[in-house]
Design a protein around this nucleic acid. Structure first.
Length: 112
DNA sequence: CAACTGACGATAG
DNA sequence: CCTATCGCCAGTT
C-alpha cells in the first residue's frame, strides 16, 4: 500500500517541495542550495534550487536571502542582489566574517 | 525536439 | 589554495 506515502503533502513536484522547505527556514538561520536539494529528495539538484529561487521568489514570498552557497557566502554579484541579501541577513542577526562568510556553526539551519 | 541556462557541489589535478 | 570539469534537474528559447 502506497497509501502511506506521506500523509501530508509530498505529492507535489520537486520544485514545490523546495519552496516549502525554503519557507521553513527560520529567521536568523541559513541553508545551502545543496542542503535544500537534499531535503527535497534530490541530493544533487542544487542548481535546480537556484532556478526555483529566481522563478518563485517573484511570485511567492520566499526567504531566498536565507539560501546561500556551500562556502557560507553570497554568490550573487555586487549590484545584482548581493548587497540586498547581505543586508537582509544582517537584519535577522546573521553576521558575516571578514571574508563575507557566514559561520555555519552558528547559523546553519538544521531541520531536526 | 535539442540546446542552453542557472545565485551549485563534489572531485580531481 | 586555486582552477577545471562533470553531474544534476527543470524551465526557457
Amino acid at each position: 500500500m502506497k497509501a502511506e506515502m506521506q500523509k501530508t503533502s509530498q505529492c507535489s513536484s520537486f520544485s514545490q517541495r523546495v519552496k516549502k522547505i525554503i519557507q521553513k527556514i527560520p529567521k536568523g538561520k541559513v541553508a545551502t542550495y545543496g542542503q535544500v536539494a537534499v531535503y527535497a529528495g534530490h541530493p544533487r539538484a542544487a542548481r535546480q534550487v537556484v532556478w526555483i529561487l529566481n522563478s518563485s521568489s517573484r511570485k511567492d514570498k520566499l526567504p531566498w536571502h536565507r539560501v546561500i552557497n556551500r562556502k557560507g557566502s553570497i554568490s550573487l554579484k555586487p549590484g545584482y542582489g548581493y548587497e540586498i541579501q547581505k543586508g537582509l541577513l544582517r537584519k535577522e542577526g546573521v553576521k558575516f566574517g571578514k571574508d563575507d562568510k557566514i559561520d555555519f556553526d552558528l547559523y546553519l539551519w538544521i531541520p531536526s
